[in-house]
Design a protein around this nucleic acid. Structure first.
Lengths: 225, 225
DNA sequence: TTGTCGGCCGATCGCCGACAA
DNA sequence: TTGTCGGCGATCGGCCGACAA
């Protein structure tokens, strides 16, 4: 999973520490948020927080829901000298904005998520993310080839039509909605990387529990997406 | 799961020993037929077979495939005296045939399993299992309420029509076929218990492996169905 | 600019008798 | 008696512009 795509799916509020950065690990918070109770048996003493050094970062996506998450490997850090504030502020160098992929997120309306319907493409998304349409033909239309976070290819018909004119995704859209089990309130993220390739990521709304369908969050420590 | 329904689904060739009966347990056969390798670490010595006494019998049905199977609990049996032949021939007392439910099995034809089609009901099945139709109305038809091995209710329209006249299941049948993923060659078993309630069980043909869909048999010792 | 609606057209589903094995 | 076929009517999916927020 490409880092720029992962970041676009996770959103701007998700910050990932750099490998080698110092962070605080809170066992209680880990236990409260993890789906399966973590194994704390190797902890030598009970403390509220542990100063750690980031050993490894994995950027992953759920096979089931397409939601992105990260696995952060930590080493306990024994302070010989007082840590410098800079040690805490290290974040992954994404090339100072310039290598970041261009992305656009939209919350699905009932019309977007309805079976019978297509997807209303906000103008900014069509202009900045999608390839330019050929407006010399009527109606202007093209097939979009996009990949989800697992690398699976999807094809959508992108057309500019109606009165007033607007951008729409039609053919291929409902198959995507059904396959991903999207509902109104979920978000889709369209991403264009530096090579011009298109990706589509998902964010899910909080679901009502108690239904038979169970979508389990991974039991790892993860940064919120 | 009612025993008479289980027996009808399993078929006449499936014989179950009675609790208390003596049986031979073959570890090698168990290992060869089980999906997951059994844990033989508690076996004190290596022998080809072990004389055992049946401690418990569970009659079960696969959640995934509706196929019935049994879990047989065994205790090692130390022979103080030579076992009598009668000890081996004990089978579950089903009330000497008289309490056994009436059942009829049919292998699905391509027409039965096709999406567009209904189910051709053999005359014997309609006459002996289904409730009598009211032939004074044209066409004679009724709704059948049946339960699968999990107790889930299904409804089929049973109609007597066509030239020449024949019994058919129409409305509701294709939903059942799709939901159970039935294909030509699979069998359905219609069962009427003593109370007149209808049940429907399944037997699957040997599937070609290697497909992405994996249907795992339970890893227990079971009697073949 | 874009969310929702009703219209409408084509594809599919599924019920039917004809016919033959 | 019952398996398969083609016909055909009902239903559904999904593309469309109209219109209003």
């Amino acid at each position: 999973l490409d880092q720029s795509v992962w970041e676009a799916c996770a959103g701007n509020s998700a910050k990932i520490p750099a490998v080698g950065a110092l962070v605080y690990y809170f066992p209680q918070g880990h236990g409260e948020q993890a789906y399966a109770a973590p194994d704390f048996s190797s902890l030598s003493c009970e403390r509220a927080e542990y100063l750690c050094k980031v050993k490894e970062i994995q950027l992953l996506a759920s096979e089931e829901t397409d939601e992105v998450y990260s696995v952060v490997g930590l080493d306990p850090w024994i302070s010989r000298s007082a840590p410098s504030p800079d040690d805490f502020s290290l974040t992954e160098d994404t090339g100072a904005e310039k290598s970041r992929a261009l992305s656009f997120a939209k919350i699905l309306t009932p019309s977007d998520a309805n079976n019978g319907g297509g997807f209303s493409v906000p103008r900014f998304c069509a202009d900045s993310i999608f390839p330019q349409l050929d407006f010399s033909v009527e109606p202007p239309a093209q097939m979009l080839n996009v990949r989800d976070v697992h690398g699976k290819a999807w094809e959508f018909r992108h057309i500019y039509r109606g009165t007033p004119r607007r951008h729409l995704l039609t053919t291929g859209w409902s198959k995507f909605v059904n396959s991903k089990k999207l509902v109104a309130g979920d978000s889709v993220v369209f991403i264009k990387n530096k090579a011009g390739e298109l990706f589509i990521g998902l964010r899910r709304t909080a679901r009502s529990f108690g239904s038979s369908g169970s979508s389990h969050a991974p039991s790892h420590v993860g940064s919120p997406s």
